[in-house]
Write a protein that binds this DNA or RNA. Structure first.
Lengths: 277, 277
DNA sequence: CAGTGGTCTAGACCACACT
DNA sequence: GTGTGGTCTAGACCACTGC
């Protein structure tokens, strides 16, 4: 039954920028048939997009409480249930955190709970607490021109400015991870070895606080490799020792790649944990 | 229907078996304070449990369509919205699959879509289709008594009957994976090397069809190791070659462990893919 | 066409946290 | 108490599938 362009159901959604009244016919409603019309998009999806836009724009920062469901419903001129469904999905994606009785908050990496969402190396025996906090040591922080492959993955052009960081993580004095990071120079202007070294919390928390860059999701490619001479020295193993190679591309809002990282993990007494479901 | 434990809000739901009228005081409502009272459990959670129970009992088998939301609402004497929320969560957990216009179905491993939910080894370049179907070869299938460690992980007693299966997977003629599986003898009574060899589909699909065992989720522990002599021969690499060790404990409904598996993956031209979010 | 899941609303009431 | 998120209902209507 004749659906065109934007919408039957959606006519209501123009409310944010124009009248919520169905009498205001948009161009697409005027009978023009568009074979490439976008698929139907429910109201709550549009609300979700609007909230996401506010997050990106920094209207609410990590850790902030966003307006109540009721307030948002009023702002967007929809029912609370519709806002609710939008927030539900954003919470499922770990962009928002709901706290009953308190409110809904912008997710942040500066919480214990999300602390180990991205670092999946766990001790074979005992608990996380047993191994204590990871001790970090920044080995290097340089500004240079992006090699072709790095540029490609970060969505930059070859030769664009990037930052290269190298660090070692240890548990109870024993080095376990050596990592190399590549960050786009623009968003991370001003990042120095000192900034990184002085910080004690999770690196992604610092990225949020200092540069307004929030990592939202990441893709990892894992391989088994042999330790080369340099890495072997840093990790205290012999050359040739099997190591886990973890290559990560991390994205901020809107699927924009913001960090390329390659880690080499010792897995003698630890393992990379993954849940399949 | 369904209520045990305690409840304020739940008074409504006892309507099926007793009066919905608050005047009928249940023991817990009589002013007795129970410090160990179970936490509040919403109606939709209880519905979820009931549906799960039907799944476990085999009332609806993998691939079957379950009753419509309306029918289930009538059966459980709740509103459609409540059933909806229960089904939503079961669908999120990959236990059910919703198909608009058709119905809601019990998830199964015998679908292309879920085919690679558990096998995460992908080619570094090109697509899944490029590498073609995995060629499977069963090397061994023995019935024996469970070693202590295997028994512990499968929730059996040391010495209980278990099946041990060993197989090799290859892509385009090149072996890439050697796997060893341990299955509890009871649920898998009758499994033979022939059964396994004759089957062409995913192993978990065969488990569903032949033994009524549906794998629902799994936990993997990943390490980097060096190939031993035997493995090196099977995979066509030299001893000492770095390999990915993937140890998986797979669970069926109700978090019951049903399979222990250890795979050794070549990662020269392939990688283990993981999405963090 | 009828049957299924999907969206949206409006309103009532409960649980939880803070003040 | 007030304000927040959480649950539940009842009903309307839309979108998709297949007869």
């Amino acid at each position: 039954m004749i659906r065109i362009g934007a919408a039957t159901r959606q006519s209501r959604k123009s409310m944010a920028t124009s009248s919520p009244n169905p009498t205001d016919a948009s161009p697409v409603d005027a009978g023009v048939y568009d074979a490439t019309a976008p698929a139907f998009s429910p109201l709550y999806q549009q609300i979700k997009t609007l909230i996401l836009r506010s997050l990106q724009a920094g209207e609410w920062k990590p850790g902030d409480m966003i307006p109540s469901e009721f307030d948002l419903a009023a702002r967007f001129r929809v029912s609370q249930g519709t806002v609710r469904k939008a927030i539900d999905e954003l919470a499922t994606d770990n962009l928002l955190v709901r706290r009953q009785g308190k409110g809904t908050f912008v997710a942040t990496h500066a919480e214990v709970h999300t602390q180990y969402r991205f670092l999946r190396l766990l001790p074979d025996t005992g608990t996380l607490e047993d191994q204590g906090r990871a001790e970090r040591r920044i080995v290097e922080c340089r500004r240079l021109r992006a090699p072709a492959e790095v540029a490609r993955q970060l969505g930059l052009r070859t030769g664009d400015a990037v930052l290269q960081v190298k660090r070692v993580l240890a548990f109870a004095g024993t080095p376990a991870i050596v990592e190399e990071l590549w960050l786009p120079g623009g968003p991370f202007k001003g990042l120095t070895l000192e900034t990184l070294s002085d910080d004690q919390g999770p690196m992604y928390a610092l990225f949020e606080a200092q540069f307004g860059v929030r990592m939202v999701r990441a893709l990892e490619k894992i391989k088994a490799v042999s330790a080369d001479q340099d890495t072997a020295t840093l990790l205290g193993v012999s050359p040739g020792h099997p190591l886990l190679s973890v290559e990560r591309l991390a994205y901020t809002y809107n699927d924009e790649p913001m960090e390329l990282r390659r880690g080499l993990y010792r897995t003698d007494t630890r393992h990379y944990r993954n849940e399949l479901s």
